[in-house]
């Protein structure tokens, strides 16, 4: 059973935020599915690109931000060049990633890593983990 959508969410700040960051009109998407049809990374995604946009239209913030899809997107622009309505899907994906990143959540806490593991981790990996996954 998939989540019920209470339509109150559609008027949320989330949709406005996505539109502001991506500079795209989310309502311009008429759900033809061409982006999903041509996406080279779709096999690795849990939600298809067109459904991500539909969920944004419907205000499904949690589902979208928790999806693997927005991180799997490689910004290859296949969808962007093919979209009949000129919606820049890659920019929308980037906006969604930005919303997550700007929450400044620490995904990596160096103190919680066991000393034993820490001694084996390559230094460069540790540095980039701290740069990318901590606030």
């Amino acid at each position: 059973m998939r989540a019920e959508i209470s339509i109150k969410n559609t008027k949320s700040k989330f949709l406005d935020k996505v539109e502001e960051l991506s500079e795209q009109n989310i309502y311009a998407c008429y759900q033809c599915g061409k982006c999903s049809a041509g996406c080279p990374s779709i096999s690795e995604m849990d939600i298809s690109p067109s459904e991500i946009i539909r969920l944004v239209q419907l205000g499904g913030e949690e589902e979208v931000l928790n999806s693997k899809t927005i991180w799997v997107c490689a910004s290859c622009f296949t969808c962007v060049t093919r979209c009949p309505k000129g919606v820049d899907v890659a920019k929308i994906m980037e906006a969604l990633r930005q919303i997550t990143l700007r929450k400044n959540v620490d995904y990596v806490n160096p103190l919680s890593i066991p000393r034993e593991t820490l001694s084996q981790v390559p230094q460069i990996a540790l540095v980039s983990a701290l740069r990318k996954f901590s606030g």
Partner: peptide, 12 residues
Amino acid sequence: ADTLTGRKIEIS
């Protein structure tokens, strides 16, 4: 319902 996402929709 929204058959594009397969979800039930409730609107007041």
